[in-house]
Write a protein that binds this DNA or RNA. Structure first.
Lengths: 346, 346
DNA sequence: TTGAAAGCGATACCAG
DNA sequence: CTGGTATCGCTTTCAA
């Protein structure tokens, strides 16, 4: 007689085979009990489930993914995790993916193109079911890799230009134009654009372009821009605002590239004794959770992040089920608050 | 003579075998060229790299993970993605993990215990190299699963109590006590605690406990608490503050469970004509990016999130390399601003 | 320095 | 409804 001692250490997690053996059926049956329960006799199914419960069985999805050549991972690439810029997109995207038991694998490029390439490559090595990525402007190599992967690619947040596959976002040029219109309607004419604009932040560049075109069309003087590569923060906004007003004291409205920067701008203006919105107007972008809590309350633009996340998940499901690529425009809203209305507009 | 036509469609990504064949070596050699380059003749290595480049080879880490029984995935479990609460932890954790080419797989429980169990199980099915999870209070089943996994488990943000393996965080009871001390030092005596406190948010409960003990020790009257299960927002803060003052008009200081809620409290108080900080003081928790931008600027507590993320990554590396479990206390700082100093303290 | 062969833990197809 | 068997793409001994 022989004894077989099986060392069941932690790295020796139960497998389908363990539980098949325990129940006295084939591996195959156990696998089916998991994926297609009604192809297995109820009583057997019960015993199998009991065994899984008892052994604390956790399926190995690496194995599952390998053999089925798809992985239920969704690669998510964002350009920053600062503040709440994309958190709520990730939040809603993830919670929608949960319905299909898909996991988010997160990558953050920090607006670095080289990093983006590296991260995309890295994500693809997990054979994700889809990739959701911020922006529609990527290095050629990134586009090539994503296209070659053959999986659904959802570009989020921005739209327009060359879309790889499917896009869910909005037109940032229009947002910039809306900022201009709002300021003009508020009674301002000498506009400036200010904020943190990274080299690779094409969205910010589009917003600036929209702002400039709208100002030009309204016959306003050229827009003064004062930006910095450094990450957006209220400290940056404060510094930039001081510098801006030193050089261009005649400015009467400031469009900011983000709300957090705008917060700093408000602080700087108050320190300089400028009355907002009477002497100078301020508009932001993003609708930070505090935008309505600063004083004066900040007029800004609120992209519907929750919807972007949800529609991205839906686009992924649709594409996986064979739907055609598409581009979906998502709403944004002008949040009119106190900081940008000089005169009563009626 | 025979022709072999290999359909190279998207689902047919190049494998180690493809490039082995192309170069005319064994699969094995290619694999080593990738993982241990200096065990391969330089010239051969060059040809292999060239072939990989040409075919746009992306390794299949599902296969790699399966055969090596470890996966370079780090499961990260947070309780919320609202605002900036944990974004910066994720940010720094991820960027530190990148050095070892490890990926973050993200899960969000939204303070739901059942969801946490499901998500942890799901993460474990990817055979992660480690799991980093917010909090030290988990359902018994969650603890059992995490322990049984045999991988490093890093509990972040909180410390104390039963730690599964390793913890990187701070003592929330002490934070609550510090809020009390700060308010007392600011000249206030009739304190209230207000905010969004989910059933499963043990950290908030600890902070409240700390606040209560410190108040009791200082001989202050019992702390009035007014909380809600609903998610934290400035709207919630505003509503709760109004309700609180209706019922307890004598309150002279409010400790808030989060800055965003505090923002709403400030708004409510101003609407009610209360002068801050003269008539009533307010203190927050979290140091939201706008805390210094509201008026009056919010006194609050700033946990060092960036360090928590980085130390978590280091703890993961250390544990993988055989180091013992440990608990690391991370600093937090009282950010003294205008909202909580009634009298000059010297 | 290189290669052959045996897994890793599932899934898929085809019989029975 | 159930079970065998071949894969999936890579890592890992062990020889050569």
């Amino acid at each position: 007689m022989e004894f077989e001692t099986v060392e069941k250490d932690a790295r020796n997690a139960p497998t389908l085979a363990s539980i098949a053996e325990k129940v006295g059926v084939s591996v195959n049956t156990v696998s089916r009990a998991l994926r297609a329960p009604n192809t297995v006799r109820p009583e057997l199914r019960r015993r199998i489930n009991a065994a899984m419960e008892e052994l604390n069985y956790v399926p190995n999805r690496l194995a599952g993914g390998l053999s089925s050549t798809r992985s239920d991972i969704v690669g998510v690439v964002v350009t920053s995790l600062y503040y709440s810029e994309f958190a709520s997109i990730i939040d809603s995207l993830q919670s929608a993916l949960l319905e299909r038991d898909m996991q988010v694998m997160l990558a953050n490029t920090r607006y670095d193109a080289a990093q983006e390439l590296r991260l995309v490559r890295s994500l693809l090595s997990w054979r994700p079911a889809a990739v959701a990525i911020i922006g529609v402007d990527h290095a050629p190599k990134v586009v090539e890799l994503l296209k070659a992967s053959g999986i659904p690619i959802i570009e989020m947040w921005d739209t327009g230009g060359e879309v790889i596959d499917t896009a869910v976002g909005f037109d940032h040029t229009a947002v910039g134009a809306a900022q201009a219109s709002q300021l003009i309607a508020g009674g301002y004419r000498r506009l400036a654009f200010l904020g943190s604009v990274r080299e690779n932040d094409r969205r910010a560049q589009k917003r600036l372009k929209g702002l400039q075109s709208a100002a030009a069309m309204a016959g306003l003087p050229e827009i003064v821009t004062h930006t910095d590569q450094q990450g957006g923060s209220s400290e940056l906004g404060e510094r930039l605002a001081h510098e801006l007003l030193e050089r261009h004291p005649h400015i009467d409205a400031i469009a900011c590239n983000s709300d957090v920067v705008a917060f700093g701008v408000l602080r700087a203006l108050k320190k300089r004794g400028k009355r907002i919105p009477e002497e100078i107007g301020v508009i932001g972008f993003g609708d930070n959770e505090a935008a309505g809590c600063v004083s004066p309350a900040l007029t800004t633009i609120r992209p519907d992040r929750e919807t972007i996340g949800r529609l991205t998940a839906e686009a992924i499901f649709a594409r996986i089920n064979g739907a055609q690529p598409s581009t979906t425009l998502v709403e944004w809203k002008m949040m009119v608050r106190e900081s940008a209305i000089r005169k009563e507009t009626r």
